[in-house]
Amino acid sequence: MNSQPMPAKTTEVINISELDHHFATEVDRRSQADLKRCYQCRTCGNGCPFVEAMDYPPYGVIRLVQFGMRQKALECATIWVCVSCHTCSSQCPNSIDIAAIMDTLRSMALEERAVIGNKEILAFHLEVLHSIERYGRTHKLGIMLRHKLLTGQWFKDVDVGLRMLTKRKLDLVASKVRAMDEINRLFLPYWRVKPR
């Protein structure tokens, strides 16, 4: 099963004068997750199916927030790898909404133009949004093709794409919302993410 990564760089020196004392309160207010209740039991790190692909385990991110280490929290890969499966919160003894904390940190990272911890995952999300913007619905084939082309991953995964196509899992024609003006309105004043 999963082995938990050790919290990154445990010997690192924390410069107290650089800590952001409002960060935890801010994240707590936006996520309504009650993160101050976390007593670092680490259960969430055991349950998370994706902990191997993270640079900090879920409790590690919460610790960064509790300590006010703003930049580290906003720039870590963990917040992008998290798929909001809620395995962690269903096991957390304090019922902390960990996925909501990740959601909040992701939004903050984009708003503050922090360095993105995993650009490929963000690129995928933006592809999906692009599809919603054009069709009001997600068009799986378009997303797959564009995503694979953009990330140069096409050949790595071409096998699955073809298998899906031949089984017609991916429809060739996009289905579209009729009242597209209603969808367009949502994207009009919309900030365009240009990840750093």
Binding site: V83, D103, L110, F124, V128, L129, R137, V177, E182, L186
Partner: peptide, 25 residues
């Protein structure tokens, strides 16, 4: 009639407000 995408994981990941609006429609 004329439903749209609920926002999927992606809208909620990068812009929860957009996800909220899509679901509300």
């Amino acid at each position: 009639e004329d439903w749209n995408c609920c926002g999927s994981s992606s809208a909620y990941s990068v812009d929860p407000e957009l996800g909220f609006n899509l679901s509300a429609r």
